[in-house]
């Protein structure tokens, strides 16, 4: 069975997995231009995020077309993206 991850908004650099994806497993992201397949570098559970672009340390994580956090390490395409490599930079102003 094909496994999918969801791109919430075009331009986002992460997708959200809608299946439990294993290490080195192929998953598919649907875009306006059809399906694109990627390979996961780690195990990624349902609901967790995976990078679909290279994100350097200090760069923004984009989901919903919005900056949701800052990378605390270099992130490769296919990497699991969560609290181990993302910092919350939100402040109440």
């Amino acid at each position: 069975m094909k496994k999918y991850a969801k791109l919430v908004k075009v331009g986002d650099n992460v997708v959200t997995s809608v299946a439990d994806i294993g290490e080195n497993e192929t998953f598919i992201v649907k875009t306006e231009n059809g399906e694109k397949s990627y390979k996961s570098n780690q195990k990624v559970d349902f609901g967790h995020k995976i990078a679909v672009e290279e994100i350097k340390k200090g760069e923004q994580i984009l989901k919903y077309g919005q900056e949701i956090g800052i990378a605390t390490a270099d992130i490769k395409v296919g990497d699991w993206v969560h609290i181990h490599n993302v910092r919350d930079n939100y402040e109440v102003k």
């Binding site: 609901g47 994580i61 919350d88």
Partner: peptide, 15 residues
């Protein structure tokens, strides 16, 4: 939230 895959407050708020 974190176990379910939400990483930051902004991500949760956008949802």
């Amino acid at each position: 939230n974190v176990a379910g895959g939400l990483t930051t407050l902004v991500e949760k708020a956008m949802g």
